[in-house]
Design a protein around this nucleic acid. Structure first.
Length: 470
RNA sequence: UCCCCUAUAGCUCAAUUGGUAGAGCGGGCGGCUGUUAACCGCCAGGUUACUGGUUCGAGUCCAGUUGGGGGAGCCA
């Protein structure tokens, strides 16, 4: 008999009554009735709900096996779908055969016992946490959001560019990098002046894991017009917060013949499409998050979808913050034009002042990267961040500096070596055009959508300082 | 990297001013029931993270180490 997914059974509901099916999955719980039947909740991860398998004493392995099958055991069940006599489910499987494929060797120490566990504990058993309700839901939500990203871009004539993971740029401008090397650390080759001789390394030069695909994707933008990358990025910062990972996934579109306003529109359109698909496809998981994790998460998304994102200049943001201070609002850090906003300032703008995501635009050039386009005022650059309640910055983007002379003077100002960026500068020498793009943090977006408190719990295996067990 | 908090049963937590460890959940066994956060009874399970110190006596106080968490910075 061909197995079917539990999701496919629930999709058809009572229509499926009378059919013979085979399902395969893992036991969530088992409840016994001494009348001679057991109710085995089986999950295969295809949807939030588990299927109730009704196993009677007529099964030849009922007392020897079914009555001993507890949480975590893998099972195959065959039988007929019937409408349920009990409350809580529309259909259930009246089993004619239940095979225990894999036992749990010691139920007393099985790490995922059927009870509430803390997320901190579950991180220590990350190889098993996917079996819990929460992480199953996270996995499906993550998939749906990722698919929605590709769907949105594909529908809007973007090309997915697979930018490299290993990069020869040692300064992509976004933080500390992980070194990639095959040199023998115990016996490093040296140059005559005593430095490590990277010409002997695998690539014949220093290489690192990428911190951003942006510079590479810009090159393809200058030919295919609308492009994006979506892949893992790596930052060797010693960051210990609920918003940072050493390995995280980032979506980075780049659009040619475009300015900052169009960039912000693109970010808004992408986020709204992602969340629209999420509510449409994962209502079951989102109801769980609303029920157990964050009561307001669905309403928050619905509110986001219902109105345009607030757009605000950095300078106006500073004015709002100064006005708040004047009215007696206390911040730990002072606010003044020219300094980067602290977390508490960002939170005030997005959580207190607006209550929805805010697109903050046109920052002082001193606090932003070299590639961001200098505005006509000479003191700000065409940068935009999208700040979201609860998580802070989920998008960082800009219109790129397309003028070679301005780019070069910015490189010099920031004490960077133009020669290192020779191929990036070439884009400005051969058919340059105004263009813009941004980076959307995938895990932060999931945190925002689900109300989960920590990015470490929305990625299958988190990498953080001092933590790479799995 | 800085600041703060924390470490007790498989898990979540209790344990008066320092007096020698307890509950719930989970697990096993039994009872009951078309059950579904099931319910009732019994049982098992702990060098109180580690090292050292103070004390007649340390889960409790002190120091160090290690792990975990929260916040800050960096950013996505």
């Amino acid at each position: 008999m061909t197995p079917v997914s539990i999701a496919s059974i629930f999709r058809r509901g009572i229509e499926s009554v009378g059919e013979s099916v085979r399902i395969q999955g893992w036991v969530k719980t088992r409840r016994d009735s001494k009348a001679g039947i057991s109710f085995v909740q089986v999950s295969d991860g295809s949807c939030f709900d588990s299927l109730q398998v009704v196993a009677g004493a007529v099964l030849d392995n009922y007392s020897t096996e079914v009555l001993k099958a507890g949480a975590g055991c893998s099972v195959i069940a065959e039988g007929t779908l019937v409408s349920s006599q009990g409350k809580g489910q529309s259909v259930e499987l009246q089993a004619t055969r239940v095979e225990i494929v894999g036992w749990v060797e010691d139920p007393d120490t099985y790490p995922i016992s059927p009870k509430a566990h803390s997320f901190e504990y579950l991180r220590q058993v990350a190889h098993l946490r996917s079996r819990t309700n929460t992480f199953g839901a996270i996995g499906r939500v993550r998939h749906t959001l990722a698919m929605a990203v590709h769907e949105y871009f594909h529908n809007n004539e973007f090309q997915w560019i697979h930018t490299p993971i290993i990069t020869g740029n040692d300064c992509e401008g976004a933080g500390q990098m992980f070194r990639v090397s095959t040199l023998d650390l115990a016996n490093l080759p040296r140059t005559p002046d005593g430095k490590v001789d990277f010409s002997k390394d695998f690539f014949g030069r220093e290489t690192h894991l990428t911190v951003s695909g942006q510079l590479n994707v810009e090159t393809w933008c200058m030919a295919l017009s609308k492009v994006y990358t979506f892949g893992p990025t790596f930052r060797a910062e010693n960051s210990n917060t609920s918003r940072h990972l050493a390995e995280f996934w980032m979506i980075e579109p780049e659009i040619a013949f475009a300015n900052l306003a169009q960039d912000a529109d693109l970010a808004e359109g992408l986020l709204k499409h992602m969340f629209t698909r999420l509510l449409a496809e994962r209502g079951d998981d989102m109801r769980f998050f609303a029920d157990r994790i964050d009561k307001g998460c669905i309403q928050r998304i619905e509110a986001l979808l219902a109105s345009p994102f607030e757009r605000m200049d950095y300078s106006d943001g500073v004015k709002h913050l100064e006005a708040a201070v004047a009215k007696g609002h206390k911040f730990d850090y002072p606010v003044s034009w020219g300094t980067d906003l602290q977390s508490e300032h960002e939170r005030y703008l997005t959580e207190t002042l607006v209550g929805r995501p805010v697109v903050l635009m046109n920052y002082p050039k001193e606090i932003k990267a070299f590639y961001m386009r200098l505005n006509d005022d000479g003191r700000t650059v065409a940068a935009m961040d999208i700040l979201a309640p609860g998580i802070g910055e989920i998008v960082g983007g800009s219109q790129r500096e397309e003028r070679l002379d301005v780019l070069d003077s910015r490189l010099v100002e920031m004490k960077l070596d133009p020669a290192v960026y020779w191929w990036y500068r070439d884009l400005r020498r051969y058919g340059t055009v105004p263009h813009a793009g941004f980076g959307l943090g995938f895990e932060r977006t999931i945190v925002y959508a689900t109300g989960m408190a920590n990015v470490r719990d929305v990625i299958p295996f988190s990498r953080t300082p001092q933590n790479c067990e799995f």
